[in-house]
Amino acid sequence: MDFIEVRKGAFSVAEEFAALRRENRGDGACVMFVGSVRDFNAGAAVRGLKLEHYPGMTEKSLQDITADARAHWPLGRVRLLHRVGPLALQDDIVFVGVTSPHRQAAFAACQYIMDRLKTEAPFWKQESSETGDRWVAAREIDKREMEKWG
């Protein structure tokens, strides 16, 4: 059972956790990741950011990534939420939650989904800082993290 959503509004980690666990007696493991807006990037103080996406393709990309995770590991539930639009410091951007009978699969699948999302889901960040707005550059390390999955 997958829940995938690109949304403008904030999400509640407590509600997401509840949705992953509700009447889910077979899964003994739940791993969650939350990514949020940090205050410093590439040498400049960040005030906030704007996230843009490609409606239609972004959702499809997230569905493909989730389907591939399911093909690799025995997963129960997957919930993947990503915000777009203006975001403030410390706002949560992305939530990935997975359940599985065992922790190894849950840990691995959660990281795999995030690593792929970072390198292929069509989202773009524009940061606003003291020196003006700038589009965030892709990081080489994210590509290397992805490549380790083979």
Partner: peptide, 8 residues
């Protein structure tokens, strides 16, 4: 067409 993605 778009630049490399930077979500997450």
């Amino acid at each position: 067409f778009f630049p490399p993605v930077t979500g997450g």
